[in-house]
Amino acid sequence: MTHAKEKKHGSDEPREEKAVIIRTRNLRKTYRMGEEEVHALTGVNVEIYRGEFLCVMGPSGSGKSTFFNMIGGLDAPTSGRVFIDEVDVAQLSASELAFLRCQKIGYIFQSYNLVQYMTALENVTVPMAFAGVNDDDAHDRGMELLDLVALKDRWFHKPIEMSGGQQQRTAIARSMANAPTLLLCDEPTGNLDFKTGDEIHHILQRLNKERGVTIICATHDHRLISMADRIVWVRDGGIERIANRKDITVETGSVD
């Protein structure tokens, strides 16, 4: 179906003009499964730049999810460090971590994860409430964000009354609630059909281009990969390869 081929070797020169938003140092994660130790990550060093669109690829069991959770501040490494905007995540208290997740990072999930008993608008304004934004401002900003994902007319709908695409658009609006600099997307179009997926891709692309939001996507979707600035391959608990988008060709198996 989808695979990427490297066009050219050794063009991994750093882009000095770009600031680093996420940096990992020797990131390791070991799980204990009974007697056995499972090394999910074996010393990952990577730098992610502000404003880039990065796709993370890798087969299941490769450590991709673990890597993803680490840089999203959702899980603590066994050893090594994660810096988000030069802040060492391991040094943060629970409350500061909550602040980081609330203000700095937006999360988009494969299964949308909207709160079922809240309307679209309420879902979008939840992170604002956590951030202490007052209700009036939250309402206005929430409506703006829903407008951005073309769901302004449906602000009062509950998740159950919306299609998958609409739910994911709501989730994107929610992830942008506190204007984070970083969006973490876990298979954002994994549950969506081709056409709806495209809508999501374009919204993500717009956020990246127009608002300069750094976007990190775990995905297998070639269309998303074709939009990326860089692609990271994870395999066997380490970074197998990092390539610039322009250096590879994305081939798509066609469907008539």
Partner: peptide, 26 residues
């Protein structure tokens, strides 16, 4: 550099709103 603070505490009223709509839903 991004300044990290402690997360604000949600007022109880807001919490109550969430709880009540949750109870209503379930």
């Amino acid at each position: 550099a991004f300044e990290i603070k402690s997360q604000v505490k949600l007022p109880l009223g807001k919490c109550m709103e969430v709880v009540l709509s949750g109870i209503q839903f379930r």
